[in-house]
Amino acid sequence: MEPMLSIKNLTKRFGGLTAVNQVSMDVHPGEVVGLVGDNGAGKSTLIKMVSGVYQPNDGDIFFEGRRVHISRPSEARELGIETIYQDLALAGNLDVGANIFLGREHKRAYLGGLVRVLDDRFMQAQSEKLLVDLDVHIPSLRQKIDKLSGGQRQAVAIARAVYWNARLMIMDEPTNNLGVAQQGEVLSLIRRLRDQGVPVIVISHTIRDIFAVSDRIVVLHRGHKVADKRVTETSHEEIVQYIMGARDDYRSN
């Protein structure tokens, strides 16, 4: 199967420091890829090149078979690459529907398009249908985001990306600051996304979560890729050894 995202020899330097060094990886439709590594291993830098925050110094990004230059986050979003950051995604003082449609509000035109009025009923109905499809339970869509739990907020952010046709989802530490039950909800939502054909890249420090949700694990160490393994072919202990730098599948010697 053709990969949805294909990264070839991507390199990013900050002054004398090479944060990401010749990293290649593929993400296929219908798979969750866990991206792990110690602090400073280059996970965030790598992801930011895909989401348009940083420009690579070297290497290529292919999305759905085409070579792409992503020079801004908005360009990534237009391609269908959605990055979900905790706490940065939603306006806490607006309700669920308003957040899902934020920036792309549905309006009704009156007086021949002269006056355009928000169509909240439509947006609420669409949001409700969307959340039901994703099996997300929120007591009332009229609730402000501030009044929802961390897991529910995360779910709303994910749902919004899905509604606007995300082709690839990137999640940075999706289970941080969540209670145990909420962590479970978010992880199962990630699996449902995968089953609907949207591949997901998950960055996390929590190896347990990565194993719970990923099909494949990519480990970075000091800017290099040191492992790229199916979860069924590895173990917690082995991944920790990769993270610590004790193992490296790609060392050229």
């Binding site: 986050p73 908005s74 979003r77 940065l88 995604a89 939603l90 306006a91 806490g92 003082n93 607006l94 308003a98 934020l102 920036g103 792309r104």
Partner: peptide
Amino acid sequence: AIGGNKEATKRAG
């Protein structure tokens, strides 16, 4: 939205 979360509003385009 700007008053609630300016950064998120910007990200929403």
